[in-house]
Amino acid sequence: MQPSHLAGVINLDHPGHYIHFHWLLISYGNAIVIGLMVATFVAVLFLPFPGSRLKDSHE
């Protein structure tokens, strides 16, 4: 199957790489997306929120 179009700057139109471990088989693409999701969630929990150390200004 040939792609019908111009690729992006980083060409993903080639057969993907896969992580294979027993029953687990996941493409790098999906693994990166899910990994980023978990990493973002953890980062969000720990990163200080701007202004959170300001004095409360309203009653």
């Binding site: 980062a43 969000v44 929990l45 990163l47 929120f49 202004g51 959170s52 409360d56 309203h58």
Partner: peptide, 14 residues
């Protein structure tokens, strides 16, 4: 225009 003062985390922007 205000939120309770405990609303201070990046989780709220999602």
């Amino acid at each position: 225009d205000t939120q309770p003062s405990y609303v201070a985390s990046w989780i709220y922007v999602f």
